[in-house]
Design a protein around this nucleic acid. Sequence first.
DNA 1: ACGTCCTGTCGAAGCGCTTCGACACTACCA
DNA 2: TGGTAGTGTCGAAGCGCTTCGACAGGACGT
Lengths: 330, 330
Amino acid sequence: MADIRPVTMAQIAERAGVALSTVSYVLSGKRSVSQPMRKRVLDAIEELDYRPHGPARALASGASHTIALYLPSPQWQLVPIQQTFVAGATQATSVRDYALLLSTAVADPEAVTRLVAQGRADGVILMETLREDPRIERLKAAGYPFSLIGRTGDLTGISFVDMDFSGAIETSLAHVARLGHTCVALFNFAPELLAAGYTAALIARDVFESRAVDLGIRGLHVPSSHTRREAFAIASRLLASEPECTAAITTGWQFTGLLSALRAADLRVPDEFSVVSVIAAQFAEVLTPALTGVDWPAFEAGRLAAEMLIDKLKDKETPPRQHLVSAELV
Amino acid sequence: MADIRPVTMAQIAERAGVALSTVSYVLSGKRSVSQPMRKRVLDAIEELDYRPHGPARALASGASHTIALYLPSPQWQLVPIQQTFVAGATQATSVRDYALLLSTAVADPEAVTRLVAQGRADGVILMETLREDPRIERLKAAGYPFSLIGRTGDLTGISFVDMDFSGAIETSLAHVARLGHTCVALFNFAPELLAAGYTAALIARDVFESRAVDLGIRGLHVPSSHTRREAFAIASRLLASEPECTAAITTGWQFTGLLSALRAADLRVPDEFSVVSVIAAQFAEVLTPALTGVDWPAFEAGRLAAEMLIDKLKDKETPPRQHLVSAELV
DNA sequence: ACGTCCTGTCGAAGCGCTTCGACACTACCA
DNA sequence: TGGTAGTGTCGAAGCGCTTCGACAGGACGT
């Protein structure tokens, strides 16, 4: 129970023998202050271990120096890559002397403007975006700054960072084609995500289907959740009905069920069946039957999304930045 | 660029034809307000879509209604369980109408008091705690409320939630003993973590060694990082030098390297060698050679840690709560 | 020598809220 | 009928900061 009364700017001003406003100008640099005065103020700050009070600052200046990150609804059961986004965003935020507020995006799209409306955050990072995303509509309508991890249908004026999903699928497809496979399955994100219009799933499907045609191979589009059970069931059915299919690409963890199904069907990987998965390298590395994986620099993506947003906050006129981080086969 | 001027309490007061303070009392309930007045105020709030301004509230009341969660330094390379802590804490925080501020705990233990000192948060959640943790010392010295995910040496007066690590090790050990193994290795956390005094690693080591004696089996304590490379090297060396060791317990992802080493040594799992790992069930389920795993309810732990802290914030006199979430073999 | 422009400093007015003390007013008991 | 408790409401004083306008004084031009 120490520090009952934290040090205030008034105490610094008194100790340094200057006006309150002078202290403020030393701190913000918004007006010039003479060397001797500046030194006295800085010394007083040092001696009293002064910390500017965030809320007071936010109230007076109208900016909270905080950004909000909305986590996707847990029921989406997406890949654990999110953690890495968050870590990347946290780091970029700290480095730029901002704070990161976390919130869960509940079903209500209105929730996404709450923290900014309350003055607790200056802008928002959204993830797991949809082609037609009501949350983005709200943010636009309210005029709040935001950036996306992921993409949406209309990208004009929007800052986002996304994985180059189409590139990843193309690369993977080219890889299996080169291995001589003539029929390939894509274990895409869960059907509900496709139905909801989850952009990454739509892109994966479209690119997969058109590139398969280009390459002259059969492409089977198989949505499946990431749970082992469901992927196993779907894969088993597929292996039985389409025996000429000897390769699969998964957009995430569906490979676990797939691998189980292959084992049950007595097909060896990679001799008799090829599997390529789009998951973070940190996981690919850790898996026991070493998979052909595609690296997804998620930390980088989180970092970029935060930086874009903060840049926009600092200078309203910053043009929107759009960045596709690309993936490599590993 | 809509919403240029957000609605303020003064506008509500004017519209409802009451005093500013009355609006405040309606909102906080700290003084009674007559039914008709209350209704007029609530109607005005509804009509104007009023949102109380967080920073102003924090400034006037001295409480930010926000808690801070410090992520461990990234270089620790701990298991991806952290994500689940964060998700759990986020959820509990939202439910209780608090906000969650994320920050990375840099090396400087002083950083851990910054957000509270700046009035941006009312309390702190710490994870990956050490037996002797300078961060905890600082928080205690400053008199800031906090709760831990993990434990420390001196637990008097401290609220924490931790995994029952000793129970997990005991259970695992009993499990392999029942299978008839007479020499078991413990792949503990990395040597640097042990050296730093990471509590979980110390507990794992101590319990493992004493229980092995009790059960009359040989226990080899083998610290190893979670990287596949290092675990592989260590496991290979171990298999060569201690051929009578036919079982291993890992505290995390070291099993990946271990499994590779076993394959290289032509030992089959689980026929010729048993592996038990302490990792979140969500991952155990997903792994292809289905492992004997120990479930670690991390979401629950994050939730509890946040709840404990918020309870303490709401009522200073709340006694500290200490909670060990226990694990089950799956 | 005077006016003009900077530069550096100060005081004061908020930002939107909480909360304290004051003050009607009603209800109740003697 | 007066005194005493409540109730319900209001006004005003902050919370710790930013920022605007004012203004002294020195440096410069003529």
